[in-house]
Amino acid sequence: MTRSFLIETRNEGDVRILALKGFLDAHTAPRFEAAIEEELRGGRSRLVMDCSGLDYISSAGLGVFMTFVDEARGAGGDIKLASIQPKVYQIFDVLGFPALFDIQPTVEEAVARFGSAAGEG
């Protein structure tokens, strides 16, 4: 059976990109939670989620963002979301997440937001 959810990580300067692929539900959310936790414990709080490969998200996945966004912001970073497919965006939208999270059209724009925010604060 194919794995239904994958995370690929890479760096853009001091920003960590997590590319989410597949289906994020109550079954796969614990893996996502462990991945975010590992980044934060490793001192990486500037995180961008590349959602271009994310095909589905339920409250279990949304809950992971909720759980860690304050901690990331408290450490001087953020959890920003980028490149969300329209069908998935509607789920974020239904819950009002766009008002609470920094959601950008592309990964590049999300990374740039850290740059401008960090430039002499």
């Binding site: 339920s58 409250s59 809950g63 759980t67 966004v69 239904v94 819950l95 609470l100």
Partner: peptide, 22 residues
């Protein structure tokens, strides 16, 4: 409200909100 659910870190509450909204 979603802000309160976030404060409480209640993803279960989010699920119910989704059901009610949809």
């Amino acid at each position: 409200p979603v802000e309160e659910l976030i404060r409480r870190r209640s993803s279960g509450g989010l699920g119910l909100r989704l059901i009610r909204t949809i």
